[in-house]
């Protein structure tokens, strides 16, 4: 799928959050500094280096890859499992990285609040289910919740932009109901 008129920049980010000057990257730089400190505090020198690598990945290809590499490196740093306090500290640093670019957004308050809420909710729920039930269930549940959220925003967008009418959906429901009734009769 082609993207209309968007230059393919190596760092992956929405044009809505692209900084025009280097100074505008300050929130992200601070967030990554925090991440390096968190990694260093919990993992020592190796941890610090892992944090630095994560920051470099962000610089080269963007946040999503930095999240992936950072979490993979956590397994390397903590091969026998990670303590809850360490995990919380590192994830808070990642949350700061997540929020960093949103500071530049035109509509920033709600996305920042949503990001914090969603992250805490999903991570908390995952932790709870993993400890009470299983990792499988946690994964399935998280995938389901995220898919539902994505679809909800998608439908909200369609309705807001007038691409689907609520009336036509209502009629479709009515038609289905009528068809069901006639089948029963």
């Amino acid at each position: 799928m082609t993207t209309v008129g968007i230059p393919e920049t190596p760092r992956l980010e929405s044009t809505l959050l692209t900084a025009e000057t280097k100074r505008e990257y300050l929130p992200e730089l601070l967030a990554y500094l925090l991440l390096i400190l968190a990694f260093g505090m919990t993992g020592g020198v190796v941890g610090g280096l892992a944090g630095l690598v994560t920051a470099l990945v962000w610089y080269k290809v963007g946040n999503p890859f930095a999240f992936a590499v950072g979490h993979l490196l956590l397994i390397v740093i903590f091969p026998h499992g990670i303590a809850l306090s360490t995990f919380v500290l590192v994830e808070l640093a990642f949350l700061a990285v997540l929020i960093g670019p949103l500071v530049r957004a035109r509509f920033r308050v709600l996305p920042i609040l949503n990001s914090i809420l969603c992250t805490l909710l999903l991570l908390g729920l995952s932790w709870f289910i993993i400890h009470r039930y299983s990792l499988w269930l946690a994964t399935v549940l998280c995938t389901g919740i995220i898919s539902l959220c994505l679809y909800t925003i998608h439908r909200h967008g369609l309705i807001t932009l007038g691409l689907v009418s609520v009336e036509s959906d209502d009629k479709r429901v009515e038609t289905t109901e009528t068809a069901t009734q006639s089948t029963h009769e």
């Binding site: 999240f67 979490h71 996305p111 949503n114 999903l122 991570l123 990792l135 946690a138």
Partner: peptide, 20 residues
């Protein structure tokens, strides 16, 4: 489970961009 946390972070990143 740490990797699941990574997946959650990326998903929230996508959700935020979609909303924006």
């Amino acid at each position: 489970p740490v990797l699941l946390a990574g997946a959650v972070m990326i998903s929230v990143w996508i959700l935020t961009r979609q909303y924006l």
